[in-house]
Nucleic acid binder design. Structure first.
Length: 151
DNA sequence: TAGGCCATCTGGTCCT
DNA sequence: AGGACCAGATGGCCTA
């Protein structure tokens, strides 16, 4: 694990050593203050750790609902965000397309099964293996090696 | 071994 | 004052 760097805890605190109890307690109160500062710093570290863990949990949940195209390797955070962006845009496009179909049922039969979270892996297993006539490839344009940085 | 990715620590800033 | 959020620094792990 990481080494604990404590030099910061010593800096900037000396000017705070005087207290209302008089000069006699400079050392005592000074060390108390430093102790409190150290405690606050540790508490802040713990909060930050929890915050980042929450963020990572959110990334994991996002990974679960975003296509991985049969990649065995876990998507990085950056890749996950890019994939989510492409996925949302693809779904938006599909919804827009739906308006051009005469009946909802016809449209659903034609499209929806391919993008159901539970079915896309199976779908990709069947379709990507043959690498021909891929509906998803037409609709969904994400390729991990071809990111575009959105500005 | 270099480069990518990540976790953690830290200090600064903003908000309540 | 204290918490949330952020970005920079640092070091560990993994892979090509």
């Amino acid at each position: 694990m990481k080494t604990c760097k404590s030099s910061h805890l010593d800096s900037g605190l000396e000017s705070d050593l005087q207290c209302r109890s008089g000069p006699g307690c400079v050392v005592k109160c000074g060390s108390e203050r430093m102790e409190n500062a150290a405690k606050r710093r540790l508490a802040a570290n713990a909060r930050e750790r929890r915050r980042m863990q929450g963020l990572n949990t959110a990334f994991d949940r996002l990974r679960k609902v975003v296509p991985q195209w049969g990649q065995d390797k876990k998507l990085s955070k950056y890749e996950t965000l890019q994939m989510a962006l492409s996925y949302i845009m693809a779904l938006t496009r599909i919804l827009a397309e739906a308006e051009r179909y005469s009946t909802e049922r016809e449209w659903i039969n034609h499209h929806c099964e391919h993008f159901h979270p539970e079915s896309y892996h199976e779908y990709m297993g069947q379709k990507m293996a043959t690498d021909s006539d891929s509906y998803a490839q037409r609709i969904f344009s994400y390729h991990s090696e071809h990111f575009q940085i959105a500005n």
